[in-house]
Design a binder for these strands. Structure first.
Lengths: 124, 124
DNA sequence: CCTTCATTTAACCAACCAGTTAAGCGTATT
DNA sequence: AATACGCTTAACTGGTTGGTTAAATGAAGG
């Protein structure tokens, strides 16, 4: 898994297409192992282990009801992962829009001959 | 890497903390292999291979300038990855909101025998 | 109680991953 | 031309992964 931290576990879990298919399925509705196995072309033990991986990454929680175990998608880790990506993607995009911001700042300063100008740039 | 598709490659690349550190570095500025190696506690060949992984996932591009090779962050794959996550996270959140809305509606109807009720819950 | 159904664990395999050191390659620098 | 520098490739190691089949667990039902 490379790292043992939360983010590494989440990205590692998401790196498998089968697990992403499972997540897509669980986005609609909670499902049992048998239900999740049906559309996939792998054995139930394999699915069971994928679920274990997803569970260890906290991407899903599971509840037992009789002899069935339902898997339930958790959004928190997905949000964390998306946040991490957005953070750095935005930094990158910032370098593209920095020119725009600069021009805007210049224009603002130009306009601000008689009133206070505020900085268009916002860290984080 | 589990899958050979683009998304799998990107998530797999992001699943390593060293590679995420490299991305964080490259979000600020392009950098050479030596520069990227400095703050890390691993050998240069190791960094070189991490860069290869990032390049294969199209997360970075590289240019040669003299005897230096600069790495440059590409945002497109990051956006794709974030989009995938957001797609399913939003679906999940929607189902929660739906439940909240339902419960709120029920409570509202219950309370609404003599006055108007407003929803205390506010989605993100 | 014995069976059946849903799921997990065990044992095994082939492939991959992240790190190492040592050697190779291509481009300055002297 | 010879040396030094930046980086990559090769060869090896130990640990992990994703799949398999077969056996074990655990709750439900005859």
């Amino acid at each position: 898994m490379a790292g043992t931290d939360q983010l590494s576990a989440v990205f590692s879990a998401l790196s498998d297409p089968t697990r992403r298919a499972i997540i897509a399925e669980l986005a609609d509705r909670d499902a049992t192992v048998t239900e999740l196995t049906a559309p996939l072309s792998i054995s139930m033990p394999a699915v069971s282990r994928h679920l274990k991986v997803l569970e260890r990454a906290a991407l899903i929680s599971r509840s037992r009801s009789g002899k069935w175990r339902a898997s339930h998608l958790e959004s928190a880790p997905l949000r964390e992962a998306a946040d991490w990506i957005e953070r750095y993607r935005r930094l990158w995009d910032a370098s593209l829009t920095r020119l725009d911001a600069h021009l805007a700042a210049v224009q603002a300063a130009d306009r601000a001959t008689d009133r206070t100008a505020d900085d268009p740039r916002d860290p984080e």
